[in-house]
């Protein structure tokens, strides 16, 4: 199954990855190959198998609603490229 160049562009945009024309072609080919590999699985008859979302046979793993101490503010902000009044500072989001 071959992907179109537009589809690769769309995927790159969703992933916030910049791409040159050469990149687009390179990844179009690679991604198409991966999809083709997976298409092999379409040959298996799964009509009797319910859709599986998880491969580990665990269900309903819960924790009790108990609060525990959080990180110190210094630790929280330790990796922040920019800090401002105790907040992470980022580029303007609106406007």
């Amino acid at each position: 199954m071959a992907l179109s160049k537009e589809e690769v562009q769309h995927i790159a945009l969703l992933a916030r990855v910049g791409m040159t024309e050469d990149d687009l072609e390179l990844f179009r080919e690679q991604l198409s190959n991966i999809l083709e590999q997976f298409q092999v699985l379409d040959g298996v008859d799964t009509s009797d198998v319910p859709p599986t979302s998880h491969t580990v046979d665990l269900t309903s793993v819960f924790r009790e609603d108990k609060a525990a101490p959080s990180l110190s503010k210094e630790d929280v902000l330790a990796n922040a490229p920019r800090e401002d009044e105790g907040f992470f500072r980022v580029k303007p989001v609106l406007g």
Binding site: R63, D65, K66, S70, K73
Partner: peptide, 28 residues
């Protein structure tokens, strides 16, 4: 109105707290 957050043990009672004081690696 749970005491802790949805997927980690940080307290949900942050309303009058300074920013980034109810935070752990999970919710970060």
């Amino acid at each position: 109105e749970t005491e802790s957050k949805m997927f980690c043990s940080c307290s949900s009672g942050y309303v009058n707290s300074p920013p980034n004081t109810h935070v752990c690696p999970v919710c970060l």
